[in-house]
Design a protein around this nucleic acid. Structure first.
Lengths: 247, 247
DNA sequence: ATCCAATTTCCACATAGCGGAAAAGAGGTC
DNA sequence: GACCTCTTTTCCGCTATGTGGAAATTGGAT
Protein backbone atom coordinates (compact mmCIF):
# COMPACT_ATOMS: atom_id res chain seq x y z
CA UNK A 1 0.00 0.00 0.00
CA UNK A 2 2.67 2.43 1.01
CA UNK A 3 6.38 2.48 0.36
CA UNK A 4 8.31 2.07 3.58
CA UNK A 5 11.56 3.72 2.61
CA UNK A 6 9.82 6.75 1.19
CA UNK A 7 7.81 7.18 4.38
CA UNK A 8 10.97 6.95 6.39
CA UNK A 9 12.76 9.45 4.21
CA UNK A 10 9.89 11.83 4.88
CA UNK A 11 10.18 11.12 8.59
CA UNK A 12 13.82 12.09 8.40
CA UNK A 13 13.09 15.34 6.56
CA UNK A 14 10.36 16.23 9.00
CA UNK A 15 12.55 15.47 11.98
CA UNK A 16 15.16 17.74 10.47
CA UNK A 17 12.62 20.51 9.94
CA UNK A 18 11.31 20.22 13.47
CA UNK A 19 14.82 20.50 14.77
CA UNK A 20 15.06 23.88 13.12
CA UNK A 21 16.40 22.58 9.81
CA UNK A 22 19.62 21.19 11.17
CA UNK A 23 20.49 18.11 13.24
CA UNK A 24 23.03 15.36 13.80
CA UNK A 25 22.40 11.75 12.88
CA UNK A 26 21.76 10.73 16.47
CA UNK A 27 19.27 13.54 17.05
CA UNK A 28 17.33 12.32 14.05
CA UNK A 29 17.52 8.79 15.38
CA UNK A 30 16.13 9.94 18.72
CA UNK A 31 13.22 11.68 17.04
CA UNK A 32 12.31 9.03 14.51
CA UNK A 33 13.25 5.88 16.39
CA UNK A 34 14.87 4.46 13.26
CA UNK A 35 18.16 2.55 13.40
CA UNK A 36 21.33 4.48 12.65
CA UNK A 37 22.28 2.54 9.56
CA UNK A 38 18.91 3.14 7.99
CA UNK A 39 18.90 6.86 8.63
CA UNK A 40 22.39 7.21 7.32
CA UNK A 41 21.49 5.46 4.11
CA UNK A 42 18.41 7.62 3.62
CA UNK A 43 20.40 10.77 4.28
CA UNK A 44 23.01 9.75 1.71
CA UNK A 45 20.27 9.46 -0.86
CA UNK A 46 18.77 12.84 -0.02
CA UNK A 47 22.26 14.30 0.04
CA UNK A 48 23.07 13.07 -3.45
CA UNK A 49 19.94 14.75 -4.73
CA UNK A 50 20.54 18.06 -2.97
CA UNK A 51 17.56 17.86 -0.62
CA UNK A 52 19.84 17.73 2.35
CA UNK A 53 23.24 19.26 2.96
CA UNK A 54 26.04 18.12 5.18
CA UNK A 55 27.86 20.72 7.23
CA UNK A 56 31.57 20.62 7.89
CA UNK A 57 30.85 19.31 11.40
CA UNK A 58 29.00 16.38 9.77
CA UNK A 59 25.61 17.51 10.90
CA UNK A 60 22.81 17.49 8.35
CA UNK A 61 20.62 20.35 7.21
CA UNK A 62 17.72 20.80 4.82
CA UNK A 63 19.02 21.67 1.37
CA UNK A 64 18.25 23.86 -1.58
CA UNK A 65 16.21 21.31 -3.50
CA UNK A 66 13.36 21.77 -1.08
CA UNK A 67 13.28 25.48 -1.75
CA UNK A 68 12.44 24.86 -5.38
CA UNK A 69 9.76 22.28 -4.68
CA UNK A 70 8.36 24.41 -1.89
CA UNK A 71 8.16 27.38 -4.21
CA UNK A 72 6.16 25.54 -6.83
CA UNK A 73 3.92 23.99 -4.17
CA UNK A 74 3.26 27.40 -2.70
CA UNK A 75 1.90 28.58 -6.02
CA UNK A 76 -0.42 25.55 -6.11
CA UNK A 77 -1.70 26.17 -2.62
CA UNK A 78 -2.40 29.83 -3.31
CA UNK A 79 -4.60 28.93 -6.26
CA UNK A 80 -6.54 26.35 -4.22
CA UNK A 81 -7.08 28.79 -1.41
CA UNK A 82 -8.77 31.44 -3.54
CA UNK A 83 -12.38 30.24 -3.30
CA UNK A 84 -12.08 29.86 0.48
CA UNK A 85 -10.66 33.34 0.84
CA UNK A 86 -13.53 34.65 -1.21
CA UNK A 87 -15.97 32.96 1.13
CA UNK A 88 -14.31 34.76 4.00
CA UNK A 89 -14.68 38.07 2.24
CA UNK A 90 -18.33 37.33 1.69
CA UNK A 91 -18.81 36.46 5.32
CA UNK A 92 -16.99 39.42 6.79
CA UNK A 93 -16.95 42.05 4.11
CA UNK A 94 -13.24 42.46 4.73
CA UNK A 95 -10.04 41.50 2.93
CA UNK A 96 -8.92 37.91 3.57
CA UNK A 97 -5.38 36.53 3.53
CA UNK A 98 -3.63 33.18 3.61
CA UNK A 99 -0.25 33.13 5.37
CA UNK A 100 2.39 30.54 6.21
CA UNK A 101 5.45 30.46 8.42
CA UNK A 102 8.63 30.57 6.39
CA UNK A 103 11.72 30.38 8.53
CA UNK A 104 11.09 33.01 11.17
CA UNK A 105 8.81 35.15 9.02
CA UNK A 106 5.17 35.20 8.16
CA UNK A 107 4.59 35.26 4.43
CA UNK A 108 1.31 36.24 2.86
CA UNK A 109 0.66 33.71 0.14
CA UNK A 110 -2.74 34.63 -1.25
CA UNK A 111 -5.44 37.23 -0.86
CA UNK A 112 -9.04 38.04 -1.72
CA UNK A 113 -9.95 41.71 -1.54
CA UNK A 114 -12.84 43.31 0.23
CA UNK A 115 -15.30 45.00 -2.11
CA UNK A 116 -15.35 48.11 0.11
CA UNK A 117 -13.81 51.40 -0.82
CA UNK A 118 -11.61 51.60 2.26
CA UNK A 119 -9.72 48.34 2.41
CA UNK A 120 -6.39 46.68 3.01
CA UNK A 121 -3.76 47.08 0.35
CA UNK A 122 -2.63 43.93 -1.45
CA UNK A 123 0.13 42.30 0.50
CA UNK A 124 0.74 38.98 -1.21
CA UNK A 125 4.41 38.19 -0.85
CA UNK A 126 4.87 40.52 2.07
CA UNK A 127 7.00 39.14 4.87
CA UNK A 128 6.42 40.31 8.41
CA UNK A 129 7.43 39.25 11.90
CA UNK A 130 5.00 36.94 13.67
CA UNK A 131 4.64 38.72 17.01
CA UNK A 132 2.64 41.65 15.71
CA UNK A 133 0.11 39.87 13.52
CA UNK A 134 -2.89 37.69 14.12
CA UNK A 135 -1.74 35.11 11.59
CA UNK A 136 1.65 34.99 13.29
CA UNK A 137 0.08 34.29 16.65
CA UNK A 138 -2.07 31.53 15.22
CA UNK A 139 0.88 29.88 13.50
CA UNK A 140 3.12 30.02 16.56
CA UNK A 141 0.32 28.94 18.88
CA UNK A 142 0.27 25.78 16.79
CA UNK A 143 3.86 24.93 17.63
CA UNK A 144 5.44 23.88 20.90
CA UNK A 145 6.10 26.91 23.13
CA UNK A 146 9.88 26.37 23.19
CA UNK A 147 9.92 26.67 19.44
CA UNK A 148 7.93 29.88 19.57
CA UNK A 149 10.37 31.23 22.14
CA UNK A 150 13.28 30.37 19.85
CA UNK A 151 11.67 32.30 17.01
CA UNK A 152 11.09 35.37 19.18
CA UNK A 153 14.65 35.23 20.46
CA UNK A 154 16.00 35.26 16.95
CA UNK A 155 13.71 37.95 15.60
CA UNK A 156 13.31 40.10 18.69
CA UNK A 157 9.86 41.57 19.16
CA UNK A 158 10.22 45.11 17.91
CA UNK A 159 7.51 47.56 18.90
CA UNK A 160 5.51 48.47 15.80
CA UNK A 161 2.79 50.47 17.55
CA UNK A 162 1.89 51.25 21.16
CA UNK A 163 -0.25 48.10 21.12
CA UNK A 164 2.47 45.67 20.07
CA UNK A 165 3.20 42.89 22.55
CA UNK A 166 6.93 43.11 23.21
CA UNK A 167 7.40 40.87 26.24
CA UNK A 168 7.97 37.13 25.88
CA UNK A 169 5.90 36.37 28.97
CA UNK A 170 2.91 38.31 27.76
CA UNK A 171 3.21 36.70 24.34
CA UNK A 172 3.26 33.18 25.74
CA UNK A 173 0.09 33.94 27.68
CA UNK A 174 -1.45 35.33 24.49
CA UNK A 175 -0.49 32.20 22.54
CA UNK A 176 -2.05 30.01 25.23
CA UNK A 177 -5.24 32.05 24.96
CA UNK A 178 -5.21 31.68 21.18
CA UNK A 179 -4.82 27.92 21.48
CA UNK A 180 -7.68 27.91 23.94
CA UNK A 181 -10.20 29.88 21.96
CA UNK A 182 -9.13 28.83 18.49
CA UNK A 183 -8.55 32.23 16.94
CA UNK A 184 -6.25 35.22 17.32
CA UNK A 185 -6.80 38.95 17.15
CA UNK A 186 -4.49 41.75 16.15
CA UNK A 187 -5.78 45.00 17.60
CA UNK A 188 -3.59 47.54 15.90
CA UNK A 189 -0.41 45.76 16.95
CA UNK A 190 1.20 45.90 13.54
CA UNK A 191 -0.44 49.06 12.30
CA UNK A 192 -2.62 51.45 14.24
CA UNK A 193 -6.23 51.43 13.16
CA UNK A 194 -5.97 48.04 11.47
CA UNK A 195 -7.63 45.14 13.27
CA UNK A 196 -7.54 41.54 12.25
CA UNK A 197 -8.83 38.08 13.13
CA UNK A 198 -6.97 34.91 12.19
CA UNK A 199 -7.85 31.22 12.38
CA UNK A 200 -5.66 28.13 11.90
CA UNK A 201 -5.64 25.90 8.83
CA UNK A 202 -4.97 22.38 10.01
CA UNK A 203 -3.66 19.32 8.27
CA UNK A 204 -4.97 16.71 10.66
CA UNK A 205 -4.10 18.31 13.97
CA UNK A 206 -1.00 20.19 12.85
CA UNK A 207 -1.34 23.89 12.06
CA UNK A 208 0.08 24.43 8.58
CA UNK A 209 -1.18 27.87 7.67
CA UNK A 210 -3.40 30.67 8.88
CA UNK A 211 -6.22 32.61 7.27
CA UNK A 212 -7.32 36.03 8.36
CA UNK A 213 -9.59 38.93 7.64
CA UNK A 214 -8.43 42.45 8.28
CA UNK A 215 -9.77 45.94 7.94
CA UNK A 216 -10.31 49.27 9.69
CA UNK A 217 -10.63 48.95 13.46
CA UNK A 218 -14.18 50.31 13.65
CA UNK A 219 -15.58 47.86 11.12
CA UNK A 220 -13.82 44.81 12.57
CA UNK A 221 -14.84 45.72 16.10
CA UNK A 222 -18.44 46.08 15.01
CA UNK A 223 -18.64 42.41 14.05
CA UNK A 224 -19.78 39.73 16.48
CA UNK A 225 -16.45 38.21 17.36
CA UNK A 226 -17.59 34.74 18.41
CA UNK A 227 -19.84 34.39 15.41
CA UNK A 228 -17.15 35.56 13.01
CA UNK A 229 -14.60 33.23 14.60
CA UNK A 230 -16.91 30.32 14.12
CA UNK A 231 -17.61 31.18 10.50
CA UNK A 232 -13.98 31.71 9.60
CA UNK A 233 -12.95 28.62 11.54
CA UNK A 234 -15.32 26.51 9.53
CA UNK A 235 -14.03 27.81 6.21
CA UNK A 236 -10.41 27.28 7.27
CA UNK A 237 -11.29 23.77 8.41
CA UNK A 238 -12.75 22.94 5.00
CA UNK A 239 -9.70 24.31 3.29
CA UNK A 240 -7.49 22.26 5.57
CA UNK A 241 -9.32 19.13 4.57
CA UNK A 242 -8.32 19.73 0.98
CA UNK A 243 -4.84 18.93 2.16
CA UNK A 244 -3.70 16.41 4.69
CA UNK A 245 -4.51 12.70 4.58
CA UNK A 246 -7.82 13.12 2.90
CA UNK A 247 -10.46 10.39 2.78
CA UNK B 1 24.59 3.10 -1.45
CA UNK B 2 21.41 4.88 -2.35
CA UNK B 3 17.81 4.00 -1.70
CA UNK B 4 16.04 3.31 -4.95
CA UNK B 5 12.47 4.03 -3.91
CA UNK B 6 13.42 7.33 -2.32
CA UNK B 7 15.25 8.39 -5.46
CA UNK B 8 12.23 7.52 -7.51
CA UNK B 9 9.89 9.37 -5.19
CA UNK B 10 12.09 12.42 -5.69
CA UNK B 11 11.97 11.87 -9.46
CA UNK B 12 8.20 11.91 -9.24
CA UNK B 13 8.13 15.12 -7.21
CA UNK B 14 10.55 16.80 -9.58
CA UNK B 15 8.59 15.69 -12.61
CA UNK B 16 5.52 17.18 -11.00
CA UNK B 17 7.31 20.44 -10.28
CA UNK B 18 8.62 20.67 -13.83
CA UNK B 19 5.14 20.18 -15.13
CA UNK B 20 4.11 23.29 -13.27
CA UNK B 21 3.14 21.51 -10.08
CA UNK B 22 0.34 19.46 -11.56
CA UNK B 23 0.25 16.39 -13.79
CA UNK B 24 -1.53 13.14 -14.54
CA UNK B 25 -0.02 9.76 -13.83
CA UNK B 26 0.85 9.16 -17.46
CA UNK B 27 2.55 12.52 -17.83
CA UNK B 28 4.74 11.62 -14.90
CA UNK B 29 5.41 8.23 -16.44
CA UNK B 30 6.47 9.88 -19.69
CA UNK B 31 8.88 12.17 -17.89
CA UNK B 32 10.42 9.67 -15.50
CA UNK B 33 10.25 6.50 -17.57
CA UNK B 34 9.02 4.56 -14.56
CA UNK B 35 6.30 1.91 -14.84
CA UNK B 36 2.75 2.94 -14.01
CA UNK B 37 2.32 0.67 -11.04
CA UNK B 38 5.45 1.96 -9.39
CA UNK B 39 4.55 5.60 -9.84
CA UNK B 40 1.10 5.03 -8.53
CA UNK B 41 2.40 3.37 -5.40
CA UNK B 42 4.86 6.18 -4.76
CA UNK B 43 2.16 8.78 -5.25
CA UNK B 44 -0.09 7.01 -2.77
CA UNK B 45 2.65 7.24 -0.19
CA UNK B 46 3.28 10.92 -0.82
CA UNK B 47 -0.46 11.50 -0.83
CA UNK B 48 -0.94 9.90 2.58
CA UNK B 49 1.70 12.23 3.98
CA UNK B 50 0.33 15.39 2.41
CA UNK B 51 3.23 16.05 0.07
CA UNK B 52 1.04 15.54 -2.93
CA UNK B 53 -2.63 16.24 -3.49
CA UNK B 54 -5.07 14.59 -5.79
CA UNK B 55 -7.51 16.76 -7.68
CA UNK B 56 -11.07 15.80 -8.39
CA UNK B 57 -10.08 14.94 -11.97
CA UNK B 58 -7.57 12.45 -10.50
CA UNK B 59 -4.55 14.43 -11.54
CA UNK B 60 -1.83 14.92 -8.97
CA UNK B 61 -0.39 18.17 -7.63
CA UNK B 62 2.32 19.17 -5.20
CA UNK B 63 0.87 19.51 -1.72
CA UNK B 64 1.11 21.66 1.34
CA UNK B 65 3.73 19.58 3.14
CA UNK B 66 6.35 20.85 0.76
CA UNK B 67 5.54 24.44 1.61
CA UNK B 68 6.52 23.85 5.22
CA UNK B 69 9.74 22.03 4.40
CA UNK B 70 10.58 24.58 1.75
CA UNK B 71 10.06 27.39 4.20
CA UNK B 72 12.47 25.94 6.74
CA UNK B 73 14.99 25.13 4.03
CA UNK B 74 14.80 28.67 2.72
CA UNK B 75 15.83 29.98 6.11
CA UNK B 76 18.82 27.61 6.09
CA UNK B 77 19.90 28.71 2.66
CA UNK B 78 19.66 32.38 3.53
CA UNK B 79 22.00 31.93 6.48
CA UNK B 80 24.53 30.01 4.39
CA UNK B 81 24.48 32.63 1.70
CA UNK B 82 25.40 35.51 3.97
CA UNK B 83 29.21 35.27 3.78
CA UNK B 84 29.08 35.01 0.01
CA UNK B 85 26.82 38.03 -0.28
CA UNK B 86 29.25 39.93 1.90
CA UNK B 87 32.07 39.01 -0.42
CA UNK B 88 30.05 40.46 -3.27
CA UNK B 89 29.55 43.68 -1.37
CA UNK B 90 33.26 43.85 -0.72
CA UNK B 91 34.02 43.28 -4.40
CA UNK B 92 31.52 45.76 -5.80
CA UNK B 93 30.79 48.20 -3.00
CA UNK B 94 27.09 47.67 -3.71
CA UNK B 95 24.20 45.87 -2.05
CA UNK B 96 24.04 42.15 -2.85
CA UNK B 97 20.95 39.91 -2.98
CA UNK B 98 20.11 36.24 -3.25
CA UNK B 99 16.89 35.43 -5.10
CA UNK B 100 14.99 32.31 -6.11
CA UNK B 101 12.07 31.57 -8.39
CA UNK B 102 8.93 30.81 -6.44
CA UNK B 103 6.03 29.94 -8.66
CA UNK B 104 6.04 32.74 -11.21
CA UNK B 105 7.66 35.28 -8.92
CA UNK B 106 11.15 36.21 -7.97
CA UNK B 107 11.64 36.24 -4.21
CA UNK B 108 14.55 37.93 -2.52
CA UNK B 109 15.76 35.53 0.13
CA UNK B 110 18.81 37.19 1.65
CA UNK B 111 20.78 40.40 1.43
CA UNK B 112 24.03 42.05 2.42
CA UNK B 113 24.00 45.84 2.41
CA UNK B 114 26.41 48.19 0.80
CA UNK B 115 28.32 50.34 3.27
CA UNK B 116 27.63 53.45 1.18
CA UNK B 117 25.30 56.21 2.21
CA UNK B 118 23.20 55.98 -0.93
CA UNK B 119 22.17 52.38 -1.25
CA UNK B 120 19.36 49.98 -2.03
CA UNK B 121 16.69 49.58 0.58
CA UNK B 122 16.34 46.17 2.22
CA UNK B 123 14.13 43.98 0.12
CA UNK B 124 14.34 40.54 1.68
CA UNK B 125 10.99 38.89 1.17
CA UNK B 126 10.01 41.17 -1.67
CA UNK B 127 8.34 39.43 -4.56
CA UNK B 128 8.66 40.85 -8.06
CA UNK B 129 8.02 39.73 -11.60
CA UNK B 130 11.00 38.16 -13.38
CA UNK B 131 10.96 40.13 -16.62
CA UNK B 132 12.13 43.41 -15.18
CA UNK B 133 14.98 42.23 -12.98
CA UNK B 134 18.46 40.90 -13.59
CA UNK B 135 17.93 38.00 -11.19
CA UNK B 136 14.71 37.11 -12.98
CA UNK B 137 16.47 36.99 -16.33
CA UNK B 138 19.22 34.79 -14.95
CA UNK B 139 16.75 32.37 -13.39
CA UNK B 140 14.60 32.08 -16.49
CA UNK B 141 17.62 31.84 -18.78
CA UNK B 142 18.43 28.71 -16.83
CA UNK B 143 15.19 27.02 -17.79
CA UNK B 144 13.99 25.77 -21.16
CA UNK B 145 12.62 28.63 -23.28
CA UNK B 146 9.11 27.17 -23.47
CA UNK B 147 8.91 27.28 -19.71
CA UNK B 148 10.04 30.89 -19.65
CA UNK B 149 7.40 31.71 -22.25
CA UNK B 150 4.75 30.03 -20.07
CA UNK B 151 5.77 32.18 -17.12
CA UNK B 152 5.60 35.37 -19.15
CA UNK B 153 2.22 34.42 -20.54
CA UNK B 154 0.85 33.94 -17.05
CA UNK B 155 2.34 37.07 -15.56
CA UNK B 156 2.25 39.36 -18.54
CA UNK B 157 5.23 41.69 -18.86
CA UNK B 158 3.97 44.96 -17.45
CA UNK B 159 5.98 48.06 -18.25
CA UNK B 160 7.65 49.28 -15.06
CA UNK B 161 9.79 51.98 -16.68
CA UNK B 162 10.52 53.13 -20.22
CA UNK B 163 13.38 50.62 -20.24
CA UNK B 164 11.36 47.54 -19.37
CA UNK B 165 11.39 44.79 -21.96
CA UNK B 166 7.75 44.10 -22.73
CA UNK B 167 7.93 41.94 -25.86
CA UNK B 168 8.32 38.17 -25.67
CA UNK B 169 10.55 38.11 -28.73
CA UNK B 170 12.93 40.69 -27.34
CA UNK B 171 12.98 38.89 -24.01
CA UNK B 172 13.84 35.54 -25.55
CA UNK B 173 16.75 37.16 -27.35
CA UNK B 174 17.82 38.74 -24.08
CA UNK B 175 17.65 35.39 -22.28
CA UNK B 176 19.76 33.78 -24.99
CA UNK B 177 22.34 36.54 -24.56
CA UNK B 178 22.32 35.99 -20.80
CA UNK B 179 22.92 32.28 -21.28
CA UNK B 180 25.73 33.11 -23.66
CA UNK B 181 27.64 35.56 -21.52
CA UNK B 182 26.79 34.09 -18.12
CA UNK B 183 25.35 37.17 -16.46
CA UNK B 184 22.35 39.49 -16.78
CA UNK B 185 21.96 43.25 -16.45
CA UNK B 186 19.01 45.31 -15.41
CA UNK B 187 19.47 48.85 -16.67
CA UNK B 188 16.66 50.68 -14.96
CA UNK B 189 14.06 48.22 -16.17
CA UNK B 190 12.41 47.79 -12.78
CA UNK B 191 13.17 51.20 -11.37
CA UNK B 192 14.72 54.15 -13.17
CA UNK B 193 18.20 54.97 -11.96
CA UNK B 194 18.78 51.56 -10.44
CA UNK B 195 21.14 49.26 -12.30
CA UNK B 196 21.92 45.71 -11.41
CA UNK B 197 24.07 42.72 -12.41
CA UNK B 198 23.05 39.14 -11.65
CA UNK B 199 24.83 35.81 -11.97
CA UNK B 200 23.49 32.26 -11.67
CA UNK B 201 23.96 29.96 -8.70
CA UNK B 202 24.23 26.44 -10.04
CA UNK B 203 23.72 23.07 -8.46
CA UNK B 204 25.64 20.98 -10.92
CA UNK B 205 24.45 22.48 -14.18
CA UNK B 206 20.95 23.46 -13.07
CA UNK B 207 20.35 27.08 -12.13
CA UNK B 208 18.77 27.08 -8.67
CA UNK B 209 19.13 30.69 -7.57
CA UNK B 210 20.60 34.01 -8.62
CA UNK B 211 22.83 36.51 -6.85
CA UNK B 212 23.04 40.14 -7.78
CA UNK B 213 24.49 43.48 -6.88
CA UNK B 214 22.50 46.63 -7.40
CA UNK B 215 22.91 50.32 -6.89
CA UNK B 216 22.63 53.75 -8.47
CA UNK B 217 23.08 53.70 -12.24
CA UNK B 218 26.19 55.89 -12.28
CA UNK B 219 28.10 53.77 -9.81
CA UNK B 220 27.19 50.46 -11.42
CA UNK B 221 28.01 51.74 -14.89
CA UNK B 222 31.40 52.96 -13.69
CA UNK B 223 32.49 49.41 -12.87
CA UNK B 224 34.31 47.22 -15.37
CA UNK B 225 31.51 44.96 -16.42
CA UNK B 226 33.50 41.95 -17.58
CA UNK B 227 35.70 42.02 -14.53
CA UNK B 228 32.76 42.36 -12.15
CA UNK B 229 30.91 39.55 -13.89
CA UNK B 230 33.89 37.29 -13.47
CA UNK B 231 34.27 38.13 -9.80
CA UNK B 232 30.61 37.69 -9.00
CA UNK B 233 30.44 34.54 -11.09
CA UNK B 234 33.22 32.99 -9.08
CA UNK B 235 31.57 33.77 -5.76
CA UNK B 236 28.23 32.40 -6.94
CA UNK B 237 29.98 29.30 -8.19
CA UNK B 238 31.54 28.69 -4.79
CA UNK B 239 28.21 29.17 -3.12
CA UNK B 240 26.61 26.75 -5.55
CA UNK B 241 29.17 24.12 -4.62
CA UNK B 242 27.98 24.29 -1.02
CA UNK B 243 24.83 22.73 -2.33
CA UNK B 244 24.35 20.06 -4.95
CA UNK B 245 26.11 16.71 -4.99
CA UNK B 246 29.23 17.90 -3.26
CA UNK B 247 32.48 15.97 -3.18
C1' DA C 1 -24.99 3.38 -24.83
C1' DT C 2 -20.19 2.40 -26.41
C1' DC C 3 -15.45 3.13 -26.84
C1' DC C 4 -10.96 4.49 -25.54
C1' DA C 5 -7.56 6.34 -22.73
C1' DA C 6 -6.32 6.86 -18.31
C1' DT C 7 -5.87 5.19 -13.66
C1' DT C 8 -5.91 1.68 -10.19
C1' DT C 9 -5.32 -3.01 -8.42
C1' DC C 10 -3.10 -7.48 -8.20
C1' DC C 11 0.40 -10.97 -7.39
C1' DA C 12 4.59 -14.13 -7.87
C1' DC C 13 9.34 -13.11 -7.90
C1' DA C 14 13.74 -11.29 -6.97
C1' DT C 15 16.24 -8.08 -5.08
C1' DA C 16 16.63 -3.87 -2.78
C1' DG C 17 16.67 -2.35 1.59
C1' DC C 18 17.08 -3.67 6.43
C1' DG C 19 19.44 -3.28 10.86
C1' DG C 20 22.68 -5.22 14.26
C1' DA C 21 27.17 -4.89 15.08
C1' DA C 22 31.89 -3.74 14.09
C1' DA C 23 35.12 -0.07 12.29
C1' DA C 24 36.52 4.56 11.69
C1' DG C 25 36.73 9.21 12.93
C1' DA C 26 36.27 13.56 15.94
C1' DG C 27 36.65 15.87 19.92
C1' DG C 28 37.62 16.40 24.79
C1' DT C 29 40.33 15.61 28.84
C1' DC C 30 44.17 15.02 31.70
C1' DG D 1 50.36 14.09 22.84
C1' DA D 2 48.15 9.81 24.09
C1' DC D 3 43.89 8.02 25.86
C1' DC D 4 39.06 7.63 26.11
C1' DT D 5 34.31 8.54 24.65
C1' DC D 6 30.83 9.73 21.76
C1' DT D 7 29.18 10.02 17.01
C1' DT D 8 29.16 8.74 12.42
C1' DT D 9 30.07 5.49 8.80
C1' DT D 10 30.63 0.94 6.74
C1' DC D 11 29.66 -3.92 6.30
C1' DC D 12 27.02 -8.07 5.19
C1' DG D 13 23.68 -12.07 5.31
C1' DC D 14 18.60 -12.42 5.52
C1' DT D 15 14.14 -11.65 4.29
C1' DA D 16 10.59 -8.48 4.33
C1' DT D 17 9.86 -5.15 0.92
C1' DG D 18 9.18 -3.18 -3.22
C1' DT D 19 8.93 -4.35 -8.21
C1' DG D 20 6.50 -4.14 -12.67
C1' DG D 21 3.82 -6.60 -16.21
C1' DA D 22 -0.67 -7.33 -17.06
C1' DA D 23 -5.54 -7.45 -15.95
C1' DA D 24 -9.49 -4.84 -14.00
C1' DT D 25 -11.76 -0.61 -13.37
C1' DT D 26 -13.06 4.00 -13.95
C1' DG D 27 -14.85 7.97 -16.21
C1' DG D 28 -14.83 11.21 -19.99
C1' DA D 29 -15.69 11.57 -24.81
C1' DT D 30 -18.22 10.50 -29.05
Amino acid sequence: MSVQSVERALDVLEALAEHGGEAGLSEIAARTGLPYGTIHRLLQTLLARGYVRQESDRRYALGGGLVRLGGVAEGMVAVRAQPYLEKMVELSGETANLAVLEGDFIVYVAQASSPRRLRMFAEVGRRVLPHSTAVGKVLLAGRPPEEAVAVFERTGMPRRTPNTITEIEAMLAELAAVRERGYAMDLGEEELGVHCMAVPVRDGSRVVAAMSVSGPAERIDALDRAELAEGLGKIALDFGREFGPHS
